[in-house]
Simulated scan of single mutants.
Amino acid sequence: MSLTLAQARTIIDTALDKARADGAQPLALVVLDAGAHPVATVREDGASLFRFDIAKAKATGALGMGADTRLLAVRAAANPLFFQSVVAATGGRLALSPGGVLIRDVEGTVIGAVGISGDTGDCDEACAIAGILAAGLSHGDVQ
């Protein structure tokens, strides 16, 4: 199964609805397919300059490392030299803050990732998960 534009739009719309309901700061969102190609992106009015880049780095990093960025941040705290090397080797395409979440189909196969940036990592991640679930998909780290 491939991630569709309709699913990506549902992820974005639901994530934004949750963000507004929770009073979040303006967000940037990136939904990538399994090959890290953009399916849909959005930047809310008022989102600061680097938010899109950070959101993309969260989504790309989750795909590239096979884990949500919350888990990657924990791993990086325990092994900072390795993760500094990964960030350098990938040209900065890895952000170590919650908000990069793997997207899985109903069979559990990773079909993409969403990255959100603009508020706290916890808020960014909660919005991403709400969007993924609304699209009828699941989320989580590769085991």
Score class of each variant (00 low, 15 high):
A6S: 14
A6P: 04
A6I: 13
A6G: 07
A6E: 15
A6W: 07
A6R: 10
A6M: 07
Q7D: 03
Q7N: 04
A8M: 02
A8Q: 01
A8N: 02
R9S: 12
R9Y: 01
T10D: 04
T10W: 00
I11E: 08
I11K: 02
I12K: 00
I12L: 02
I12V: 15
D13Y: 00
D13V: 00
T14L: 01
T14P: 09
A15R: 01
A15I: 00
L16P: 05
L16V: 12
D17T: 15
A19R: 07
A19H: 03
A19L: 01
R20Y: 11
R20T: 14
A21F: 09
A21V: 00
A21G: 08
A21Y: 05
G23Y: 06
G23N: 08
G23I: 00
G23W: 06
Q25C: 04
Q25I: 01
P26G: 03
P26D: 05
L27N: 05
L27S: 03
L27G: 06
L27K: 00
A28K: 01
A28V: 06
L29V: 13
L29G: 03
V30A: 10
V30F: 09
V30H: 08
V31N: 04
V31C: 04
V31I: 08
V31F: 04
D33I: 01
D33A: 02
D33E: 05
D33G: 03
D33N: 12
A34L: 10
A34N: 11
A34D: 15
A34W: 05
G35P: 13
G35I: 09
A36I: 08
A36Q: 12
A36D: 11
A36L: 07
A36N: 12
P38L: 02
P38Y: 03
V39G: 01
V39R: 09
A40M: 07
T41D: 05
T41F: 01
T41P: 00
V42S: 10
V42C: 06
R43M: 10
R43N: 06
E44H: 03
E44P: 07
D45L: 12
D45M: 08
D45C: 00
D45F: 12
G46K: 08
A47V: 00
A47D: 05
L49T: 13
L49E: 14
L49R: 13
F50Y: 14
F50N: 15
F50H: 15
R51Y: 06
R51C: 11
F52A: 13
F52H: 10
D53I: 09
I54E: 01
I54P: 02
A55H: 04
A55Q: 03
K56Q: 14
K56F: 15
K56V: 07
A57Y: 12
A57I: 03
K58L: 05
K58M: 04
K58Q: 06
K58Y: 03
K58S: 02
G61Q: 08
G61S: 07
A62V: 11
A62I: 11
A62H: 10
A62G: 08
A62D: 08
L63D: 08
L63Y: 11
G64R: 12
M65S: 14
M65E: 14
G66L: 11
G66D: 10
G66H: 11
A67M: 14
D68Q: 06
D68W: 10
D68K: 05
D68P: 10
D68R: 06
T69Y: 07
R70W: 09
R70M: 12
L71M: 13
L71I: 14
L71Y: 10
L71V: 15
L71E: 15
L71N: 13
L72M: 09
L72P: 09
